[in-house]
């Protein structure tokens, strides 16, 4: 790995050296380094590009890092990763994709992630997307994430995309079983001419299943964002969708939340708000001695934190 690779790894996975625990590093469409542990096995898929990650039941406090970096132009990378999380296991999964596109033609990564959580299993999944490069070639990321949460399982997903990705189309689908909990936090900052679309479909199928979707986004300049969070409740369950966007310059933001209840004990709520930074907030920070620009940055930073 060269210094550019290392730089991208720091940006997307906070990795300053070879990660602890299990990992798989993918570069320009190929696995370059892989490591399994006693409890977490990583092996390539036999039928298509990608890996299976198998976490033994009861595994606790371990982590899996699966960063992807692309440093070549004209590359269209498609990868399927499947996570089998054993009953009562509790692991941290750090994914993410960094694209450094040096050329004129597009560089694209489509990651298809599937998570199968056993009874009482818990994961925290952190995914960061980042793009850079001196070339004019587009940087495109189209992640698909599928989750199945068995009884009493819980998952926290944190998906972050801040600057640099020209086009993204994100699809997230989940089914949540009895007493299982899903928390999805999505943070996005777009600028320039960027396009971002995020579609989420969550089905609450088991009694007392719960989902919380929190989307915080900032759209600057001429970028366009669209959100479609959808939650369906089939039984006694709870769902809460919260979309919050700050719009600036000539940007466009569309938020189209949808909640559907098929049961009288399904409690579903959605809130969506789009607005500019409140003038009062800017003024308050300026009375503390910040310039208008500094005040704006402070507010955005807090909002996206």
């Amino acid at each position: 790995m060269n210094s550019l690779d290392k730089d991208l790894l720091i940006k997307i996975a906070d990795l300053h050296e070879v990660p602890q625990g299990a990992y798989n590093i993918r570069k320009n469409g190929e696995g370059v380094e892989r490591h399994s542990t006693a409890n977490i096995e990583i092996k390539p898929k036999a039928d298509k590009p990608g890996i299976d990650i198998i976490v033994k039941p009861g595994t606790r406090g371990e982590s899996v890092h699966i960063p992807v970096i692309i440093t070549a132009e004209g590359l269209e990378d498609l990868v399927y990763n499947t996570f089998y999380i054993g009953d009562h296991a509790d692991v941290l999964i750090v994914a993410g994709c960094g694209i450094h596109n040096p050329g004129k033609t597009k560089a694209q990564h489509n990651g298809v992630h599937k998570f199968l959580l056993g009874k009482g299993a818990h994961i925290r999944y952190v995914e960061k997307h980042y793009g850079e490069g001196e070339g004019t070639g587009e940087r495109i990321l189209n992640p698909q994430t599928f989750l199945e949460l068995d009884e009493e399982a819980s998952a926290e997903l944190e998906m972050v995309q801040i600057r640099g990705v020209d086009s993204t189309k994100r699809e997230t689908k989940a089914t949540v079983g009895r007493e299982a909990h899903l928390l999805i936090t999505e943070k996005m900052l777009t600028h320039g001419q960027q396009l971002a679309e995020s579609e989420m479909t969550v089905e609450l199928t088991g009694e007392n299943a719960a989902v919380q979707i929190i989307s915080r986004s900032v759209a600057q300049e001429k970028s366009k964002q669209t959100f479609y969070p959808r939650v369906t409740g089939f039984t006694k369950c709870r769902g809460h969708v919260q979309c919050d966007a700050i719009i600036m310059d000539q940007a466009t933001v569309r938020a189209i939340p949808e909640i559907t209840a098929h049961h009288a004990d399904a409690q579903l709520i959605h809130e969506a708000a789009i607005g500019r930074i409140a003038g009062e907030q800017l003024i308050k920070l300026m009375t503390l001695g910040l310039s208008e620009k500094e005040a704006e940055e402070t507010i955005l930073q807090g909002f996206m934190k």
Partner: peptide, 21 residues
């Protein structure tokens, strides 16, 4: 406002704004 703040003028709002994050 900023310049006055830097000269040492301060104001506690009657109705302070709230900030997410």
């Amino acid at each position: 406002i900023t310049e006055r703040a830097r000269l040492g003028i301060g104001y506690a709002f009657q109705q302070p704004p709230r900030f997410k994050g």
